[in-house]
Design a protein around this nucleic acid. Structure first.
Lengths: 201, 201
DNA sequence: ATAAAATATGAATGCAGGTTCATTTTATGT
DNA sequence: ACATAAAATGAACCTGCATTCATATTTTAT
């Protein structure tokens, strides 16, 4: 005979899955390489083996983590871009969302943007996917601007890559060192750098 | 009593050290994560334990490798910049050296620029050092340009970071995917992107 | 040729971290 | 309360890899 899960039991399980995820985030926050399955389980208050009832393996956990945070970023970007029609305004809005979100949630940013010591293969693969996706989205904007002859002739794949790369490196710098003294100048510097780089105006 | 090494014996040892280094490069070239001490020793034609007579540990090997390749890059940059006095020309010369060297020695580039799966902590630390050093060098150029009022007011730490970041990402893209069909346009795109980004002219 | 020193060897060791599984505990349905 | 399904446990297992060390080989000096 097959038993049916009670509503309460279901909720308990869901909360447990969430606790595993947040335990993993917490551990990554304090020590990038200290997130072993054992330590995650301990922090989540479960036994090592229990972990495997909620995630197929460690890679599945990482995949879930990265997908979640990236989706959150995309949603926010979409929302902030909505009011604009001008391509440059949209790009600027995108960059502002990224700056705010990344500086607010520094450890999340470090995961998404940094190279992570002792990281699994999946982590890196997923990471590369995300960066590539950001480049892909940027390229769409650039192609539109090129189409409208708002930027000079260029290889938009290359400039989209440069755009994301410049941004990534700067955010990483702010995360790993201190944030700039003159935040206003610093933010304007990277945003202007990228927009000028495209050949705006 | 202490024996003195014969000249021939000394040469043999030096050549052995070189063979270890080149074996390590070769292994990294084909499989980023497949460079275990065992496999390196095997490829170099020595026993596992012998490795430790030439390098304190694996980290020491990695350190030697990265230092060597970075020095080579710096030397080349210095040489190519020598003829120029104009700041923009110097930056352009630097970028050209990097493009050429990185595309020519793809696996070296991947090591220097890429995030490497399964890499040791030292690897990442050294990698960050190198990127930071490139940023530091770029900032020196930018401060000079700013001083001469050849570029607009900006946070040169940020723009140097953006400059290097944009470049890094584009080179990586070429390494991991295929090189661009229209190489000329592609090269000019990244170089122009960066120079325009600074606010040249 | 012989003794001592220096090198080289590679099997054995240690360790860290992911994964499994026999056993125990908890939840479900009668 | 009882029987059975489901979930949880954590010690044991496995694997990969750096590192060590007792033993063997080669080199140096007399």
């Amino acid at each position: 005979m097959v038993y049916k899960k009670t509503k309460k039991a279901l909720e308990k399980q869901q909360s447990r899955k969430r606790r595993i995820l947040s335990a993993a985030w917490e551990l990554l926050e304090t020590n990038m390489s200290g997130a072993s399955v054992k330590s995650i389980a301990k922090k989540a208050g479960i036994a090592t083996g229990t972990f495997y009832l909620y995630f197929k393996d460690k890679d599945a956990l990482i995949e879930t983590m990265l997908k979640g945070i990236y989706q959150e970023l995309l949603d926010q970007i979409k929302k902030e871009r909505a009011p604009y029609t001008d391509g440059f305004d949209k790009l600027e809005a995108t960059m502002k969302v990224c700056v705010n979100m990344f500086l607010e949630k520094k450890h999340l940013a470090r995961i998404l943007l940094d190279l992570t010591p002792q990281n699994s293969l999946v982590f890196n693969t997923r990471y590369a996917d995300i960066i590539n996706d950001l480049i892909r989205l940027t390229k769409i904007d650039l192609d539109e601007l090129l189409e409208q002859q708002l930027i000079p002739e260029q290889d938009t794949q290359v400039s989209a890559t440069a755009f994301v790369g410049a941004f990534r490196e700067v955010i990483l710098y702010w995360i790993n060192s201190d944030e700039p003294v003159n935040a206003e100048l610093a933010y304007r510097t990277i945003i202007d750098f990228n927009l000028r780089g495209l050949g705006k105006g």
